[in-house]
Nucleic acid binder design. Structure first.
Lengths: 226, 226
DNA sequence: ACAATCCTTTACCGGACTGTGACAAACCCT
DNA sequence: AGGGTTTGTCACAGTCCGGTAAAGGATTGT
């Protein structure tokens, strides 16, 4: 599902947004001010940003401007109070995808989010079929094939390889994986992650003993090379 | 191929759209203003409408509103200039399927049109009689046959298989089914969905113990393979 | 009101999936 | 080279999930 960052300083509003979006099945992260938002945006990929304009430290406008300069093209929906200068949002090439004026109904917001997420999805469809080693993965259908033979992959295996793919050619630490795939519970110093890597290698690598795609970076984590 | 009505007053834009869409294999008709659009819509069936918002005589919004009132459910993609009130478009009460903001790239528009047309097609197929496994289903009459023998299907069973069909080859979660077929009640702590899957398998699968059409995706839901 | 039918819930079982710990192997640093 | 740390691998057990049947509840037609 889509991963949404909500940037909003008013606690009640933030909580309301988070609960409603989560109820609709979205992944939700939050930030209280512009600085925190930028921090999160630099360390994690989101699919959509709900960005209040009037927030402490760095304004919503500036957050948007900044990330666009940095090449981050995540869709943005601005949350504005009535009377704020919307023109500047839509006119100033900030690259906002939409805006919504407070007070707004939850249903309206959800409709907007879904509209944007639909657009995101259709764009992403092309990217959802990938090949790693001799394995063809299809994340829209959560299936895998190797030379026309179906390969059974568990849900979590797909999530792990998906996360690695999203961070291909980067080093991904076990901690990252536990946090993002295992969802911030279970902080075991165990071999859990390794076990999944093991299984994935057996399915992806031609010779699992000499991995060419899922590499170990000693003391740091793993790196996926497609 | 699909029959598209382009409603756009600016001649250059209209011609550009027509040429590109025709090049992609679509049938294209054009209208210069809202009145002409309504006229055409009353005399011909289209599969999709590209509707500029700012057009003479009757606005795009009003065209959409009017035909919806008349029961015409042809999908609409709005063309809007930046800064126009997207709100009203996305109010979605108008029944727009999508919108696109000028200036847009041709490739983007084509992608949108294809996305909508894909949705249309899968819907159209659904209208007719389909076959899954050894079962022939007729959704217009809500009946089913297996090798010329009538098979009794309850209303809800038909709805479930219908939903699965609309999302064939995709993973459909129990939650989705509960929300879309059962209309948003019922907690997911129940085996209700499973029971329907059980019944459907007994009617569809040759060997219900090893389902080949209604597959289980552990931890995720079900997937229909026709 | 009664019966029939369909839908929902409950309960139990079997199995898939995942997490754990032990041990071996590989790696890194001194 | 050697010790300590990190990683690979395996088998086992617990947990969660889905399959299934049967009972309980709701709705409809007679």
């Amino acid at each position: 599902m889509l991963n949404i960052l909500v940037v909003e300083d008013e606690p009640a509003m933030q909580m309301g947004l988070r609960d409603n979006l989560q109820f609709e099945g979205f992944e939700v992260a939050t930030a209280d001010d512009g600085e925190a938002a930028l921090e999160k945006l630099h360390h994690e990929n989101f699919d959509l940003i709900l960005l209040d304009v009037m927030i402490p430290k760095v304004s919503g406008f500036d957050v948007c401007k900044t990330i666009r300069k940095e090449g981050i093209e995540t869709p943005v929906i601005f949350l504005t109070a009535k009377g704020e200068e919307i023109d500047k949002v839509l006119g100033l090439e900030l690259g906002a995808d939409d805006y919504i004026t407070k007070p707004f109904s939850v249903r309206e917001l959800i409709a907007r989010v879904k509209a944007v997420s639909r657009r995101i999805k259709t764009q992403e469809i092309t990217e959802e079929k990938i090949t790693i080693g001799n394995l063809n993965l299809d994340f829209t259908h959560y299936t895998a094939k190797s030379e026309d033979k179906d390969v059974k992959m568990s849900h979590k295996e797909m999530e792990v390889i998906h996360y690695l793919w999203q961070h291909k050619n980067e080093i991904v630490s076990r901690h990252d994986l536990l946090e993002k795939v295992w969802k911030y519970e279970a902080q075991p110093t165990t071999r859990t992650v390794d076990n999944f890597i093991l299984k994935l290698r057996q399915k992806i690598e031609t010779n699992p003993n000499e991995p060419r795609h899922i590499l170990t970076v000693h003391g740091a984590g793993y790196k996926l090379i497609p």
